[in-house]
Amino acid sequence: MSKEFSTFKKVIRLPHKYGAGPTFTRFYEGLKQGKIYGTKCPECGDVLVPSRSMCPKCHVNLSEWVEVSQEGVIVSWAQTDKDFFGKPGQGTYTVALIRLDATGCDFLHLLGGNLSKVKTGSRVKAVWNEEKKGHMLDIKYFEPK
């Protein structure tokens, strides 16, 4: 085994101001009102959520806004109890890709509530925070129906 020398511990902190732009801003405003918005592509007809300014398949600018269902189906999910740097909250952390009804892509968010019987294909429904800030986590999690 080779000799080990000492180490230098360092934390890099960089402050940022992320410009959300008009599309994410309007999406966040929707969350503040307890609504989930998507944008619809005039060429392929897909409704994309969160809303986008451009369809990534057709490269067409999107301007048609639709309110999207708050219910959908779990496409895949993963769970961990482990702590990791930057983990939001404590305890069990469950993420999932959810196909909200009538949309053309999967929506990434958290699962919560009673997950004892949850599996791919389960139907879930959005559960909201009382206080909304115009933030992705205004939706507390998606709960099995």
Partner: peptide, 9 residues
């Protein structure tokens, strides 16, 4: 538009 203030640590 929204501007999200955050720090990468």
């Amino acid at each position: 538009n929204y501007v999200i203030m955050d720090e990468v640590t």
